[in-house]
Write a protein that binds this DNA or RNA. Structure first.
Lengths: 336, 336
DNA sequence: CGTCGGCATTACAACGATGCAAAGCGACGT
DNA sequence: ACGTCGCTTTGCATCGTTGTAATGCCGACG
């Protein structure tokens, strides 16, 4: 059985509360007493029972992080950052993944998956505003990612439209004109992706046509989806001279198909991805990508949750934009 | 404020205990009463406080999973499987990562990082048997991965030696003779990797020389480490006709360097990795790899923890081998 | 020498839920 | 009509910790 305050108190011949005071470094404990109690603590190997402490205090020291898919290295890398950021504040991270499915995301947002948490950081894919509006849970929530909602929750992401525009601008600066977009959502009436919007805006701004036939929808956001989309585009007789992908995995899947078809990267087709996952730096052709500042996203997410917990005056919901940069690699090397 | 049993009891005009009985589906509750209480529960939106329940029951419904590095897709994919396997049993996963550092691994094993858990699944890298022997924590522990300890804890992994031998055998069957091993541990007096042992054993068995100059140590287990190791090998004047890497990331990093140096894969150098991460299926040259059955590893790990919790008669510590297969892809395509 | 002030220590209740055992209640048999 | 039996419902203690308020103790001051 585990050692409790009571055991220590008995052993040291003092009251439970005094032991508690020592454990919690309360003032008004004489050095003598502190030493005596500490000795008992050490001898018995006492360790506080967090469950009890948290029942008493109403806090658990755990924040949940719900991501669509851990298999996607972007999310895995982000998760690692969140774990570290939380550790800074003595918080632990409970991980959940939703598969990007609406029902799972709703369950998570309403706390049905993990009911021992102080806060929730959620990166939704299909979740709708109405699902969130029905949320009764008093647990602080922070949203991550590309989806934007008009709801009173903090939202942290990079400026997806601006980043996408920068990526497309880069391609245009290389002289590319037929720039495809890979990774639109399939069969959705929703407002299009912000990244897709960036693509369109930048093409418009440059006086180029944003040809909707160069926009390829995907089922998911993995390598295979990118490969399928690229193949479909080529099979339909389109031959873009550049590809801007929703994310790196899609870009890499597309590059695989481009090589299979004998197209050279970047000579024939330049490629830009999004997320800057490590994988993109080690392919046969390294991938130019938009690199979000994952560490600061993680940090801000954790801090937002904690500030809500600490009853920061119910500020307005904030839209926070983290930094990003466009990292140029071989897949968009200038001709020459 | 959240609704508690007390609130529901008041609302329904019954005792707290009766509400508890309804919530827990106890027998001996009349249908009438059950309906009445359920109505109050629904109206007030009662949801049990798990912290309190767990204080009482001594269980939290959380298992911790401590992995070296989430950024490595193998671990990320494994984590996803563990989350799913745990969900099967209504358990949630608390994620931790150790960076593969001994001090962190020790802390985790002794429960200093997360003290609210029912069990721990740990995949150690540098942890030593002595660190574990000092473990006082009563929390069930299961070990994953390549490291083996002579300690009374369940250990789940694939048969690394056999798998490595199969990989090397495959290379030999392609007519390769100078087979390098990438990813040995650096500056360690420890018994070598099991995968390295498999490499050696199979070469011996085939009557080939296991040339230690073809064994390249790495600092870590990422793409960059593989690239560095491969470059060093080549720079030293070695030109193996095959590479067996400790894992896929190292293999991919090595492949990148091989291409940079103008060596063709598989014609000049065949490559085999380990882990079968998705990434290996989408490079310019797809990667042959040992594919561990991650789902069953995850499942068995979770089940081991839970069976220990449920006081399964303190069985012997078990060494459980999960299944694996060698998936052949372009990086070892037969000549022709 | 008695009283007051202030610090060290203690006692008690409470956080929310559940196990145990006792109490309540209706029905049945005699 | 009364006692008993058995199921339903309830009260109480408890898990380990901490906040609040009360107590004890000592020295200082008048």
């Amino acid at each position: 059985m585990r050692v409790s305050l009571k055991d220590v108190a008995l052993h040291a011949g003092v009251s439970i509360k005094t032991v508690s005071n020592v454990v919690n470094d309360q003032p008004h404990v004489t050095p003598t007493m502190r030493a005596r109690v500490q000795k008992s603590i050490d001898e018995l190997g006492y360790r506080p029972n967090l469950t009890a402490r948290h029942l008493r205090k109403g806090r658990t020291g755990i924040v949940a992080l719900a991501l669509p898919e851990l298999g996607n290295p972007y999310f895995a890398e982000l998760a690692a950052e969140v774990v570290d950021a939380a550790a800074e504040h003595d918080y632990t991270v409970l991980l959940d993944h939703t598969g990007g499915r609406r029902d799972q995301e709703t369950l998570v947002s309403q706390g049905f998956r993990a009911r021992v948490i102080d806060g929730l950081i959620l990166s939704p894919i299909e979740l709708e505003a109405e699902d969130l509006r029905q949320r009764a849970e008093p647990v602080p929530l922070v949203l991550l990612g590309e989806r934007e909602y008009d709801l009173p929750y903090d939202h942290i992401s990079i400026d997806n439209v601006a980043a996408a525009r920068e990526a497309v601008r880069h391609l245009i600066s290389l002289g590319r004109r037929d720039i495809a977009f890979l990774g639109a959502r399939k069969g959705r009436s929703q407002p299009a992706h912000l990244r897709l919007r960036g693509w369109r805006e930048e093409l418009d701004a440059a006086g180029l046509v944003a040809d909707h036939r160069l926009v390829a929808a995907t089922d998911g956001w993995g390598h295979a989806d990118g490969a399928v989309a690229m193949a479909r585009l080529l099979d339909a007789g389109h031959r873009p001279d550049a590809v801007f992908a929703y994310n790196d995995l899609i870009a890499i899947g597309a590059m695989r198909v481009l090589s299979e078809r004998g197209l050279r990267i970047p000579e024939d087709v330049a490629v830009v991805g999004f997320d800057d996952v490590v994988e993109g730096r080690f392919g046969a052709v390294t991938l130019t990508s938009v690199s979000p500042d994952k560490a600061s996203i993680a940090k801000m997410a954790v801090e937002s949750v904690l500030s809500q917990l600490n009853g920061a005056p119910r500020h307005q919901a904030r839209r926070i934009h983290a930094g990003y940069s466009l990292v140029q690699r071989e897949s968009t090397l200038g001709r020459g």
